[in-house]
Design a protein around this nucleic acid. Structure first.
Lengths: 205, 205
DNA sequence: CAACTCATATGACACTGTCATATGGAATAG
DNA sequence: CTATTCCATATGACAGTGTCATATGAGTTG
């Protein structure tokens, strides 16, 4: 394989990659603006400037396209939280709190995207990697607060609770008269509990 | 309106109600067994022994049928948790823990039903009532542990976290090497934190 | 018995995801 | 430079879906 061969191949791949990305971008915009029902292969193709069947040249089916959207969402959020952790101007508590709020912010500002993150199957290597990166950062953030040994269980509790708060807010079950609490208050309580609230974990149930 | 008139009307309504319930039952079974994609109006009608258009005589559209499914799910879970609370043979802590595990059990045993509970719109009076009943029982259970005044915020945190744990378990994000924790451990940590972990809530952020 | 009401059945339509096939331009070989 | 191969794209087709308009027929009413 000569140099020109590789470059030519790259060139062709580049144009194909361009339309692939255009498809992903179009699908993402349609999802954010019109919800899952708006993400039609025909609409995606039209928005990307190609035909309705073009996606099949880049994705095995619609589910795989959606899976790519989910991967991008996980990856993007992981980027944000990584930057949050890198900013050492604040205490580890505050960094952790901001990370949780960043996750909830996705649910608030892009609810359909957030729902997709947890509904799309996360069994492919790429999906596992993207989700695992975010979970790794969360784990590290928690470790900054409670130490390495307790980080996993506290991390799991924090991430689950954050996800739950996001989901309740998303489905409207938090904006009720029953509990007169804001999301921010809940997150603060959670961080407080993890920082110095929960008694030492015991092994026996 | 004579007695016979009313009885006749009731009789007719009864048969209509029978098919309505048959439709709901069929939809519920299809959802549990085959997931949301299996809940087709045609399939629902066939399983209920009627035609594909029959549901439109009882529900405005498919969404309203699904909303009824969600209402039933909320109501059924509320019944279970109410019975759990009525059993005074155990301490309030254990009752609360069992209530949380009951919610998570729905997610584990009927994942599609659980997903529907939080995805279906909860804006109709019936839906608000069904969901509100469960939330009321949870609130009371939490009040049994932490007292009336703190119950709302702790209840919101508990319910959100329980929902989050269920969701993470559902999407497979808990069964990862990152956090080596079981759902039961997480719930136990949560109850522990609420019982005597979280410091007194402050008003200022 | 006649008129009416209303749940149900059926035909039709637009829309969807998906596949088979055709097309045309770019990449490669001689 | 030409011919051939490859591959992204376009298009036709098909089954399946939700939904509406209409027809039918049994049950209710007067």
């Amino acid at each position: 394989m000569t140099l020109s061969t590789r470059m030519a191949a790259v060139t062709r791949t580049e144009t194909a990659e361009a339309t692939r990305q255009a498809l992903v971008r179009a699908a993402s915009e349609l999802l954010d603006q019109g919800g899952p029902d708006a993400v039609t292969l025909r609409a995606v193709g039209a928005r990307a400037g190609v035909s309705r069947g073009a996606p099949y040249g880049h994705f095995e089916n619609k589910g795989h396209l959606l899976a790519q959207l989910a991967i991008n969402a996980w990856s993007s959020l992981a980027d944000d939280v990584e930057h949050l952790r890198a900013n050492l101007e604040s205490t580890s508590d505050i960094r952790l709190e901001r990370a949780v709020l960043a996750l909830i912010d996705v649910a608030r500002r892009r609810p359909h995207r957030y729902a997709l993150m947890f509904s799309a199957p996360a069994d492919t290597p790429a999906a596992l990697k993207a989700a695992g990166r975010l979970e790794g950062v969360f784990l590290a953030l928690v470790a900054d607060v409670v130490g390495e040994s307790d980080a996993p269980r506290y991390g799991a509790l924090l991430m689950s609770s954050a996800h739950g708060i996001a989901g309740m807010e998303l489905s409207g079950h938090l904006a009720k008269d029953t509990w007169r609490v804001s999301v921010e208050q809940l997150v603060h309580m959670l961080i407080d509990a993890i920082r110095h609230g929960i008694p030492a974990a015991r092994d026996s149930p």
